[in-house]
Design a protein around this nucleic acid. Sequence first.
DNA 1: CCTACCGATCGGTAGG
DNA 2: CCTACCGATCGGTAGG
Lengths: 216, 216
Amino acid sequence: MIATAPSLANPLKRARGRPRKTEEERDDGNRRQALLFAAARLFRVQGFAATSTRDIAAAVGMHSGSPFYHFKSKDALLCAVMEEGMHRAIARQARALQEDGAPGTALLQIRRLIRAHFDTLLGPGNDFVPVMLYEHRSLNSQQRKSLAKLQANYEAAWTPVLEALHASGHLRAPVKLSRLLILGALNWSVQWFDRKKGASVDELTDAAIALFLKDS
Amino acid sequence: MIATAPSLANPLKRARGRPRKTEEERDDGNRRQALLFAAARLFRVQGFAATSTRDIAAAVGMHSGSPFYHFKSKDALLCAVMEEGMHRAIARQARALQEDGAPGTALLQIRRLIRAHFDTLLGPGNDFVPVMLYEHRSLNSQQRKSLAKLQANYEAAWTPVLEALHASGHLRAPVKLSRLLILGALNWSVQWFDRKKGASVDELTDAAIALFLKDS
DNA sequence: CCTACCGATCGGTAGG
DNA sequence: CCTACCGATCGGTAGG
């Protein structure tokens, strides 16, 4: 929202003795990262089509043409945001499933999956996955295919857990439809969740468990 | 998607004896309606920002400036699409709740509410409400306020039914969070439902009931 | 509802 | 990563 004034980089005077690639490479990575975060935030708030590459550049103190030094197109930037989001989500999910070592019961596993999913969607600064959820149609078919793999990877973790719950009578609806409906219920929280009022993520997780699962 | 060629209206030769307002008024309403339907379809498929008013005009055989004869701005057209959607949804919901006369049990009522909601979202040609769900942020605050009333009206019907189900033990999670999560699960079906394959709306309704409600 | 048009903005690029 | 720029497109309007 607030465009920081373009920071005038001091004219580089290259040191000759040292290779000094550290600063340059880190800087490069930093600027690319900065663009990724700014784009995620703006795409989430304003939408992809309503956000100009100039908006994004201004948000990190660059000039209008500079994002194209880091990303070949606006589309590619959007896709990079989504891929970043899926990699983070997959990593968080894997971490959650390995909490306290043991796999535990299916009931414990589903709680971990739901909690990790809420954290991915609602955690402070987690704009990447929400962008993916709501700007999917802005991708071309090639990009969609590459993301579909990551999504399938992510969703695959849910199936065995839901199957176990179905077998034990905790879940009555068909497994596939259950997965779609449950993930939908969670994904939609992006639209109404407010960190500053209403239920906490803990309460949300409890409510989801209570809503979806039977006692035996 | 397919732009019909602009239909050249034959030069009007006004009859003098008759008032002939019927044809003119009906035509006017038809053109406005045509714009509303075309806009809903395009906004749903491409998104609001990615759809130009020229796209919409072409879809109904008008020239680029003509939509602005019917709607004061692109925003106003979006808002009209959403209001149309909510009016239809509210009417369908009211009809569903009065089926077969009697109110029936809460279990029957929730089934009617869920089924009507799916029909509103997934029925053929029902693009209005999906546009509302996914383009909410493109409205200004005044338009949001006017729509919020319609949405509150729509959601109000769910609360007493969910409260009855909570009291009878069919619903375990808190009523307010239940409503948010259930509507989210249903709303998300817009993203994955495919009339041509997978579950039918009937099966979806059964699965939702089985997922959300306990036996007693 | 068409014609003809305007000012603004946009994604992207060449060349440094 | 900046400077300077291009062609295309967009929402909207005047005047009929």
